[in-house]
Design a protein around this nucleic acid. Structure first.
Length: 507
RNA sequence: CGGGGUGUAGCGCAGCCCGGUUAGCGCACUGGUUUUGGGAACCAGGAGUCGGAGGUUCAAAUCCUCUCACCCCGACCA
């Protein structure tokens, strides 16, 4: 391969998408596998992305009246036993704590001792333990609505894990709310779904489809599960957030009752909703390219890398003087209300090494300042959403303005690009043969990137859904909320159907 | 839990089939010199109980037995 064709990440997306994904994470230094199977170490650059996700979502939650609180990581087993579907859904992936101390045995090895009278499970989600508190907190309709969120870690003992997308332990936020009426709870469920979709679009630059899950895909114990689904660059769907209308199921299980306006006791209506560190996986797979991570400016831990270039001490002084001046100016500026964060990279490395370092990390803008630029009163600026060789010569006086408008433009451009990609790979299919052809790779041994989102009719029968899953590994990602009602025939059985569902291969 | 694969320097690997000097290579690291606008070059240097235990042998990274760990594919899933 000649030098001009070389990409920073190998293999490329078309060659081996899942390996590419891992290499992007490695090259950007986001995270690594730990000594604990299935658990990752989130490194500073990756964690800074999570912090930005957290700060912005947290603000949106608070703007809508939610308060943060914190509940125990351990859930007594009997709490968990209260909701049958919930058990069914999570029992197979629970870490269980049975002992409280370690003792040294005859062989000098440590072994667990002090068996607990009742085992604890490590929370795979907190409905049951939060419900126990809510039962005490809620007595009257005057206590409602109760709008609580917690930022926490979660353990789900999955069989196979992938960095960010599915890890044994992960970080998330879980909102739990209690309402007086069914309608109020449903409004809350959809309001939070809107917030997720808005956040995905405006901050992560991910176009997300709001929809409802089918019976087989919904949260264990929920009445309805809503989700936002996005398309990754391998045309597979990734669920990016969920919001559940829990009806009175968990209120009954946890005995959350209140005296209503008529003075009668009744069960409350609850919701729960969450997004996790999986969003970082979505971010990577939506925008990154064969040169590494691409970050939307509004979520990037830093926005501009300033790279001084010089050959000797005299040049160094001149160049650094200008670099520092620009750096200070930019650091005091904002774009779309976000303070601009810069990285002045004066490490003893060649300019291209420093350039590639920041390209792989996904920093939105790079400014090169060299001795040749001083007489021309200009610098060279590169955008991460363009080819690494596309230079923009910008007059020094214009740099601040250029950076501000370009960061805004990039945020929009990255979103539009992702949206176009999804639209190009979304089709309406009404013919069963065509449906099968669409989701069947040419090379079954090593499937190439194929398929996409198929909008097809579904009669509502879980059996049709199951057959399609068995035969094609394609699932109904959601029934989109914003689609028009339309009469048609089920893609599998031909029975009448009133709406299209989104079918896709999924993570 | 089934099927496949890998454990040799911080990382990536060769050597193993066919046992034999002092276990190599690339990257990274350390020191030095020259470099610097698109992934630098040269010189010197440090770094390893060859995953672990047992066995066969004059001799084991290499052969045999057991064992541990990790990765990929499937069943489970945000």
């Amino acid at each position: 391969m000649n030098k001009s064709e070389r990409t920073a990440i190998e293999p490329r997306r078309e060659e081996n998408y899942s390996e590419w994904y891992l290499q992007v994470i490695k090259a950007a230094d986001l995270a690594e596998n730990s000594e604990v199977r299935g658990c990752m170490v989130i490194k500073p650059w990756g964690f800074a992305i999570w912090e930005n996700i957290r700060i912005n979502l947290d603000r949106m939650f608070k703007e809508t009246g939610h308060q943060n609180a914190y509940f125990p990581i351990f859930i007594p087993l009997h709490f968990f036993e209260k909701e049958a579907e919930h058990i069914e859904g999570f029992a197979k992936e629970c870490a269980v704590v049975t002992h409280s101390r370690l003792e040294t045995n005859e062989q000098g090895k440590l072994e667990p001792s002090g068996e607990l009278t009742e085992p604890y499970i490590v929370r795979p989600t907190s409905e049951t333990i939060i419900g126990a508190s809510f039962a005490r907190w809620v007595n009257s309709y005057r206590d409602l609505p109760l709008l609580i969120n917690q930022w926490a870690n979660i353990v789900r003992w999955e069989m196979r894990t992938r960095l960010f997308l599915r890890t044994t332990e992960f970080l998330w936020q879980e909102g739990h709310t209690v309402h007086e009426t069914e309608e109020d709870a449903m409004i809350e469920t959809l309001r939070m779904l809107d917030i997720y979709a808005k956040f995905a679009q405006e901050y992560l630059a991910i176009p997300a489809i709001k929809g409802e899950k089918t019976e087989s895909e919904k949260f264990p114990g929920a009445v309805n599960t809503y989700c936002i689904e996005a398309m990754m660059q391998d045309k597979k769907a990734l669920q990016c957030g969920t919001s559940h209308f829990l009806g009175q199921n968990f209120a009954r299980a946890s005995n959350i009752r209140f005296q209503n306006r008529e003075g009668e006791f009744q069960y409350a209506w609850t919701t729960s909703w969450g997004v996790s560190t999986r969003l970082i996986g979505a971010l990577i797979m939506t925008h990154s390219d064969d040169n590494g991570l691409v970050l939307p400016p509004k979520i990037a831990p830093a926005h501009i890398a300033i790279i001084p270039i010089y050959r000797n001490e005299q040049e160094r002084e001149m160049v650094l003087q200008l670099a520092n001046k620009l750096n200070n100016e930019l650091r005091q500026a904002e774009f779309e209300g976000i303070p601009i964060i810069t990285e002045l990279d004066d490490r003893y490395l060649t300019s291209s090494e420093r350039n590639w370092y920041w390209i792989k990390k996904g920093i939105p803008l790079r400014i090169e300042i060299g001795p040749r630029d001083i007489p021309t009163h200009s610098v060279i600026i590169f955008r991460r959403d363009e080819n690494p060789k596309d230079k923009h010569r910008v007059m020094i006086d214009e740099v601040l303005k250029y950076c501000k408008t370009t960061l805004e433009e990039m945020q929009n451009h990255i979103f539009q690009k992702a949206k176009e990609f999804r639209e190009q790979n979304t089709v309406k299919i009404d013919n069963k043969e065509e449906f099968y052809r669409y989701f069947t790779p040419k090379n079954a041994e090593e499937p190439e990137i194929h398929g996409g989102f198929a909008h097809s009719h579904w009669c509502g029968n879980p059996l049709c859904e199951e057959k399609i899953k068995e035969e094609l590994k394609v699932t109904i990602r959601c029934i989109p909320l914003e689609a028009e009602k339309e009469e048609g025939k089920c893609i599998y059985c031909g029975q009448p159907s009133s709406q299209r569902a989104i079918f896709a291969k999924a993570y």
